[in-house]
Each structure stands twice: as structure tokens, then as C-alpha cells.
């Protein structure tokens, strides 16, 4: 009945007193502020994607798809082929996963199903803390311990030094192991205990219950854990940089042979982290080629992350970093 159409609700039989309507002052700044913050964040991240896409355009124009399939990178003669770096990234990550995934999942079974409860919490806490060790520290361990050891192990292949794709892969395996263990353990623990008890009541022994009940029911969580770890391995820079050898144009003659793994190589991240990034700015095409690598890496990692989220299911917060694991370095 308020003819003035004011926002305050009018109460005809009890005319509003000033005290009745006090405190009704709007604070639109909370809404406005949250909207602005969301917009800023979106702008920053979409800006990153856009920047990589736009600034890498010249190299796509220059080389076309041979930018992806070319195996030679000589920036002085403007030959840009990213394939050896893509190969290096995939090879290093494959080694890491091949080592860390089975070991990590089996260890998660140990922690979740075999370790007594009072040891489980401290073990899990320690593992989560280890997932937070900075990658530069892992890199230091790689330089001081792993490099020499790998040179001995790989001696039959006569590597030029201990800096090889295999060294980077092994180091990465150690780095992603805590992530895989703790996320897989979460997945296994999320299988209701009643399921296990029902299986045991049917006469299954513990091993059978693990194989037939826990692992199958936790499957999507386990896959998500491995995919998250893969995403981290693909993007890891500093530790890989220190032990991969950073040798350009390492393209294996036979794609599936293992021998090239015992030689130095280059990954997308070690290339981007190197001094060539500084040099490249002088030449728009060279700069575009570097940002093209960044774009490839971003798409690769985003794809793996999306796959992980899709596997884990839309409602699962398991991959939430604040919850159980961080994504310490990439």
C-alpha cells in the first residue's frame, strides 16, 4: 500500500517506526565485490589461455601442423618442431606412472586395509606432508643422489651422463608417489566397511575382499588419483629441468625402443623453463614458438584434469586440493 513504491515493506496497520526499518541499509558491496572478484579471476585465467593462443599464432601460420609433427627445432633458421619435447614430456610421465601407479596403489591398499588404525593416521599425515616437499628440493635430491646412481644403473646403455629421460622419470615417480598413495587411500576408504564385512561374512578372506570388493568399487577414485598424478607429472618443471639433460632434437629412431630413455632429452617444461625463453622475445616467430609449447602443455594438462574430474564424478570433491592433497609443484 505504499504508493511511493519504496523497497521497504509497508505495514499498514502498524506504521513502520524508524527502529523497525533500521538495519535494512543494503550492502551491495558484498555482491558487487564477489562478482568483481570472480570476474577478475576469470579474466586472469582466460587471459592466460588467450595470451598463449594469440601470441603463438605466428608459429601456427609459419609452420602449420608441422609445428606439432616436426622433429627439428633450430630457432636460428626458424625451424620449429615441437614433437621431441612432446615425446620427452610423455616419456618422462609414462616412466613415472609406470613406476608410481602400481606401487602407490598397492601401498594405498597397505595403508587402508592392513595398517592398524592408530598407525594409519600418522602414516597418512606424513605422506601428505611429503606431497608438499617443494619440487626444487626433489630436484636437489635428484642432482645429488639419483643422477650418479642412474648413471651406474644405465651403464649398459652407455649414457653420456646421469641426466637422462629415465632419471627424470624416476625422480617424478618419487614425487608423485605421495599423491597417488593418499588419493588412492581416500578412494579405498570411501568403500563402505559394510561391503567388506558382507564379503567376509560370505567366507571371502582378506585378500579376496580386497580384490573383489575394495579395488573394484574404488576403481573410479583410483583412476582419478592416477590422472591427477599424471597431470602433475606432465607439468612438473624444476625437478625435471635439473636432471633431464635438456638436449634438443632427441627424437628416437624407433618410437617404442627403450634406448632413447637412457639418453638426455627435453620436455615441454624444461624447454620453457630454460634461458631460451628470454632469448626468444627478440624474434616474434621464436616467441610464438615458445608460447605454442605453453599452449600445448596447458591443453594437455587441462585435458587430463578434466578427464580426472569426469572419472571421479561431478559430485566428488576428492580431487579438491584443500581437502586431502595439494598439487605442490608443476
Amino acid at each position: 500500500m505504499s504508493p511511493d513504491g519504496s523497497t521497504a515493506l509497508t505495514v499498514p496497520q502498524q506504521p513502520p517506526t524508524s527502529s523497525r526499518l533500521a538495519g535494512l541499509a543494503r550492502w551491495p558491496w558484498i555482491y558487487t565485490g564477489s562478482l568483481v572478484a570472480t570476474g577478475l579471476a576469470a579474466l586472469a585465467f582466460l587471459g592466460m589461455l588467450g595470451l598463449f593462443a594469440v601470441e603463438s599464432l605466428p608459429v601456427w601460420r609459419h609452420a602449420g601442423l608441422s609445428y606439432l609433427s616436426g622433429i627439428e627445432w633450430f630457432f636460428r633458421v626458424q625451424r620449429f618442431g615441437a614433437l621431441p619435447m612432446i615425446y620427452g614430456t610423455l616419456a618422462v610421465s609414462a616412466i613415472a606412472l609406470a613406476l608410481a601407479a602400481p606401487l602407490g596403489i598397492a601401498s594405498a591398499v597397505f595403508v587402508a586395509e592392513i595398517l592398524p588404525a592408530r598407525l594409519r593416521i600418522p602414516a597418512k599425515t606424513a605422506i601428505e606432508l611429503l606431497a608438499g616437499v617443494p619440487s626444487v628440493v626433489y630436484g636437489l635430491l635428484g642432482v645429488i643422489l639419483l643422477r650418479g646412481w642412474m648413471q651406474d644403473v644405465l651403464a649398459p646403455f652407455e649414457p653420456l651422463s646421469g641426466d637422462t629421460l629415465a632419471t627424470a622419470g624416476v625422480l617424478l615417480a618419487v614425487m608423485i608417489l605421495p599423491t597417488i598413495v593418499t588419493l588412492s587411500e581416500d578412494a579405498l576408504r570411501s568403500v563402505p566397511a559394510s561391503q567388506r564385512q558382507a564379503a567376509r561374512a560370505l567366507g571371502f578372506n582378506r585378500g579376496e575382499a580386497i580384490l573383489r570388493i575394495s579395488l573394484p568399487q574404488a576403481r573410479s577414485g583410483l583412476v582419478a588419483a592416477v590422472l591427477l598424478a599424471l597431470g602433475r607429472a606432465l607439468g612438473e618443471t624444476i625437478a625435471v629441468f635439473l636432471v633431464v639433460g635438456r638436449q634438443d632434437n632427441q627424437w628416437p629412431d624407433r618410437l617404442l625402443s627403450l634406448e632413447p630413455l637412457a639418453a638426455a632429452g627435453q620436455t615441454l617444461t624444461s624447454k620453457l623453463g630454460g634461458s631460451e625463453t628470454h632469448i626468444a622475445y627478440g624474434d616474434p616467430l621464436h616467441w610464438a614458438a615458445m608460447l605454442g609449447l605453453a599452449l600445448i602443455l596447458l591443453i594437455l594438462v587441462a585435458g587430463v584434469t578434466l578427464a580426472g574430474s569426469a572419472v571421479a564424478g561431478p559430485s566428488s570433491g576428492r580431487a579438491a586440493p584443500g581437502k586431502s592433497v595439494r598439487h605442490p609443484d608443476a
Binding site: M1, S2, T7, A8, L9, T10, V11, L24
Partner: peptide, 20 residues
């Protein structure tokens, strides 16, 4: 209708309505 006036009127403040 709240005292004869539609609570979906533009002039009606739903928060004030809920307080009443």
C-alpha cells in the same frame, strides 16, 4: 496478499516481509 497488497509487488521487500 499482505494486508491487501501483493507480496510479489515490486515495492515489496521480501526480507522485510519475512521479518513481519
Amino acid at each position: 496478499l499482505w494486508h491487501g497488497r501483493s507480496i510479489h509487488d515490486r515495492g515489496i521487500d521480501p526480507d522485510a516481509l519475512r521479518a513481519r
